[in-house]
Design a binder for these strands. Structure first.
Lengths: 210, 210
DNA sequence: CCAGCAAGTAAACATATGTTGACTTCCCGG
DNA sequence: CCGGGAAGTCAACATATGTTTACTTGCTGG
């Protein structure tokens, strides 16, 4: 929508080309993925145009169709990456360190954009297939989180635990969005240290260590 | 995007016209507002077309421009309505009943759509002006919530409280979206009673009654 | 060194979408 | 009963957007 100057991916001063190989399909693919993740997380799926993404990545629009079939395919690739990242966090983290892990994700506002990846999971898509993938990512993540606190599939009375895990996940994502996409102050300027305390309170309240 | 049959706003059986006056600007305006709120909340701003909204409301597209100037104007009207609703809740509610009030909002999945109005505040817009309004709504709501727990503007050391109020708000909205828009199970099927316990834990953990 | 092929580009296309202006239909006060 | 104005409709327009096709560029293996 807004027309920013494209990010050239290399320094635009004519001096040093910063070793970006000029023809490298893998790197170009990754540039597109990174640009897309940021745009989708910030503006949502429908509001992001493929030309925006291509300009950010500094490559030609047609390459999106070539490497990802379509805009929808690119979005799916972004969702998968975010899902892997999120599951890595809620998975191989000791149960009592989960709040810190979540806090770290939310606090990271850098271009790397772990927070962006979280936002990606809440922003609207208006696309049925993308919604399905997103739901799958969230289900698996919440089950992993619940399992860390003693949930076992089908076990009677532990449905409560899964519900609470999903609420904790929702809370974390909600904070991430208000912080990184909507930029609500003072939440947006809070440091990781500012966040980790309240987040610990929040997670512990929903999922008491068993 | 998907082509549903239009909701005729009156029974389509020829028998009884259900007393919908045939020309009533105020009612038509309201029909548009209701249809827009639902669409915007479910699909997001950019993914919703004015033709979708008009069809849902059973009126002509051109009336959107007439009554709300533009699609953006209609979205603003929806945001204002949601903001009023939310502020009514976080405002004139005794501090210790806030979790129940939030729970009631989140639990309401009906077409009336209080939950929709919450979702509206997180779904992406890709529109600068709408984002500004949304931010304003969220700021005022979180300040009202924080004030109920003892926050006073500018008071030293109470910034923490505002931060925590914003996180509580974010958590509530996150739950509303995962529940009503993304339809994550079992969160989506949970009853109001299922939600109020965890929500009370959540709000109390973030904002201890002072 | 150079043929061939992958990587990248540019332009065009078909369509969807927000908005507008001219036109028609209905209601109501005189 | 009727004329005027409000409420509603229709069709067109300008533009933005996803995708494709034909083309150019540069690298590399033989």
């Amino acid at each position: 929508m807004t027309a920013e100057p494209p990010v050239p991916a290399t320094s635009s001063t004519a001096g040093e080309p910063a070793q970006r190989r000029r023809r490298d399909a893998a790197e170009t693919r990754q540039l597109l993925l990174d640009a897309a993740r940021q745009r989708f997380a910030r503006d949502g799926y429908a509001a992001t145009t493929v030309r925006d993404i291509a300009d950010d990545a500094g490559v030609n629009v047609a390459l999106i169709s070539r490497y990802f079939t379509s805009k929808e395919g690119l979005f799916e690739a972004c969702l998968r990456a975010a899902g892997d990242e999120l599951r890595r966090t809620t998975g191989q983290t000791p149960a009592d360190r989960v709040p810190e892990a979540i806090a770290r994700h939310i606090a990271d506002l850098g271009a790397a954009g772990l927070s962006s990846q979280l936002s990606l999971l809440l922003r609207s898509s208006g696309d049925a297939r993308a919604d399905e993938i997103r739901r799958g990512v969230l289900v698996r993540s919440s089950e992993q989180l619940a399992a860390a606190r003693g949930w076992r599939p089908g076990e009677p009375g532990s449905e409560q635990l899964l519900l609470r895990a999903q609420m904790a996940l929702a809370a974390g994502i909600g904070v991430a969005v208000l912080r990184s996409s909507i930029r609500l102050e003072p939440l947006s300027s809070a440091t990781e240290e500012d966040l980790v305390g309240p987040l610990r309170d929040l997670v512990d309240a929903l999922l008491p260590p068993h």
